[in-house]
Each structure stands twice: as structure tokens, then as C-alpha cells.
Design a protein around this nucleic acid. Structure first.
Lengths: 191, 191
DNA sequence: CATAAAATCAACACTGTATCTATTAATAGA
DNA sequence: TCTATTAATAGATACAGTGTTGATTTTATG
């Protein structure tokens, strides 16, 4: 279906994206202007406005595609509380996706990144990866649970960021296991 | 010494800060213009440029004051590996400071916040609060230590943010203890 | 009260935004 | 390959906000 899109559109959008990624390595998204971007990729400014309303909307559409890919992986790997092995499978898939889009992810998670995106990602992780752990988090009226939950969630994202930015990365499998170990270890404090 | 500053300057700076805090509740710093700010507090635009070069630099100076207050508290509470009670004292002081500047902190940690500031704060926590725990983090060649460290650090910041945003906050003392418990519990995985 | 300094006002050139219309070029489908 | 369609371009426009200047007014302090 996405093959039906005019080649010219595909081409210009791809150029714009590549250019944005290149600019995001150097500066914050808030400092990148439409003019700068179209000059970077040598495209008319009017053409940009033909596809996007502004830089933020453009970035959002890139983020949306990434999120969709992640959502898709989550749907394909339904979590089963009986069999723990599926936890690792899902975590591995998620880490693989993020690793495949390393450049964008590092930019979005970095100092010039987009907190709104990070929060969307956190929410997704919270609702899925953590859903599998809800039976570990004893959600009975322990008043500290929300805090421990937050510690765990932000901890995971922070660890993933560290991993993506690392020179020589550990394997996806190793990280999935470490992640699981850390979460389980933290969750047991709610008991 | 800060009392020697002309009352007019104190007044305008205070007005500008209050205005910026008000605007930051509604929108991202990148969307706030100098014009908008000076209109919010009814001050001439030239006057703004008399004190700051732009919005970012203004925010930075606010952040600097906060950081200075935090640094000061850290210096006043030297950490002693022998006596664990001082850990709680320092943590309590830090939480108290952040709570006193709740409005700014929530804004800076929130979706429209400033990642650079968050990273500065993380670094400070890492270098001080965690220094006391270095003897817990076995820093021998365990390859996972950096990841566990990151998990812990981001987890702490995330938990503090959750706490600051909470409607009915737990006491500072309670949070300091919880923080300590979480860190210690995580750190033992490096053994 | 005098003086020094801060705040204001109006004007300036400048950069980037968002939108338009007419024109040119590339594409998909018959 | 031809043709209708649609994307991309160039150039123009009104508009927002920036950062700076110099002259003037207001305010604070000894």
C-alpha cells in the first residue's frame, strides 16, 4: 500500500528525514529551522510545507513510525504469565528495534532530545513490559508502589539509553536478561 | 553582598522569573519568546536584553542558582562512610531544596522541561549521593556495572520527579529512606 | 538634592515563517 | 509513447520576533 505513493514524494520525504537526522546530531530540534533543513538537503522551502507544517510535526511523524513498529512487535508477542520465556522474547524484540534505529533513538533520548517522545516510549513500556510484571508488583495498597514503579520505569529507559550510546554494546539477549533481573529485583521491594 | 544590587534590578529580574515560571506551566521553553515574556510581566523588551541575552540564558541562570544551592548543601554535609546516618541527612536536604523550588523543578523535569538541566542534576547526584555508595557498587571489572549504575541514577531522578508531582507528598524523611533502600537493593546486584 | 544607573521608547536592519500564484518537471496509467 | 495528473520550483508577500542603537525619562542612593 505504501508502494502506491508517488516516487517523488518518497524521495523528498526521505531526503528531508536524512537531513533532519544529520542536523539533529549537531543541534537541538528547537534550533533547527525549516530554512536550514531545506538548504541542507537542497529542496525548495515550499516543498517542505507541501508535506509538513513545521519541524516539530515532521519529527512527530518520524516518531510515530518508530512507535508503530514497537507497537506492532508488542502485538505480535503476547505476554503469557505462565511461560516466562516470552518476556525475554518481547524485550529482545524491543531492544532490537531501538538498536536498528539507533541514530534517531540516541538523538531523541539525548540532551537535545524530545521528552515528549521519551514519555510516550515510557508509557508503552509501562503498559506492556510492565504488564507482565504486574503480578510481581504487588499492587495492593502499599503507598510506596508508585514510587518504586517510577524508579523502575525510568531506570529501564536510562539503562537502554546507556546501552544504545555505548561504544561496544552488549548483546541484545544479555541486556534483556539484565533488564529483567533489575526489574524483578526492584519489584520484590513492594512485597 | 547580593543585597547591594539595585532594587530596580532585583525587581525586574524577579518579575521576569515569575513570568517565565508562569509561562513554563503552559508551554515549552522553546516556544516562549522574549516578546511574550516581557508582555506577560509588562516590562520593556530592551530591559530584558539589559540583563539576559535570550530566554535560554535566562533559564540557565535560574538553573545555576538552584544548582548552587544544591552544591552548597552537599558541601555542608560531608559524607562519611563510617556513619550511615549522614546519608539520610544529605538526601533529606536535597529533597527539601527541590521541594522548596517545586514549581521550577516540576517544569524542568516535565515534558516541556530541560534535559540538559536534568543531566546536570543527575551528574551532581551521581558524584555525591552515589559517591557514598561507591563502596556498595563493587566497581571491579563487572561489565554490567555501568548499566546498573545508569538504572539506579535515572531511577532516582524519576522517583523524585514522581514525588514532586504527587498531590499529597510523602514526607522528605520517608522518601530519603525509600531512595536509600532502592539504591542499596539495586547496588547489591553488582556483587 | 545631585548624580549615577536603570528602565523606557522608537527606530532599525535582519532572519525566518507561512502562504500564494504561476510555471516547470516528473510520474503513473492508458 | 502520449497525456492527464500531480509534485516541485521560483518568486513574491505580509508577518513575527530578534537583537541592537541612541535619546529620553524615571528611579535609587549617598
Amino acid at each position: 500500500m505504501s508502494e502506491k505513493i508517488d516516487r517523488r514524494i518518497r524521495k523528498t520525504k526521505a531526503q528531508l528525514r536524512a537531513g533532519l537526522a544529520r542536523l539533529m546530531e549537531k543541534k537541538s530540534i528547537k534550533e533547527i529551522t525549516v530554512k536550514e533543513l531545506v538548504e541542507e538537503v537542497d529542496i525548495n522551502r515550499s516543498t517542505f510545507y507541501l508535506h509538513y507544517t513545521d519541524i516539530y510535526q515532521m519529527l512527530e511523524s518520524i516518531e510515530n513510525e518508530l512507535m508503530e513498529e514497537v507497537s506492532h512487535a508488542i502485538e505480535e508477542n503476547p505476554v503469557n504469565t505462565e511461560d516466562e520465556s516470552c518476556h525475554y522474547l518481547l524485550a529482545e524484540q524491543l531492544l532490537t528495534i531501538l538498536d536498528n534505529h539507533k541514530d534517531i533513538c540516541v538523538a531523541l533520548l539525548g540532551s537535545n532530545g524530545d521528552m515528549v517522545f521519551v514519555e510516550r516510549m515510557e508509557k508503552l513500556i509501562a503498559e506492556t513490559v510492565f504488564r507482565q510484571l504486574n503480578y510481581r508488583f504487588s499492587l495492593h495498597e502499599h503507598p510506596d508502589t508508585p514510587y518504586i514503579y517510577a524508579f523502575c520505569l525510568k531506570g529501564c529507559v536510562g539503562m537502554i539509553k546507556t546501552w544504545l550510546c555505548a561504544e561496544q554494546q552488549q548483546s541484545v539477549k544479555h541486556m534483556a536478561e539484565l533488564l529483567h533481573r533489575l526489574v524483578a529485583n526492584t519489584a520484590k521491594l513492594t512485597l
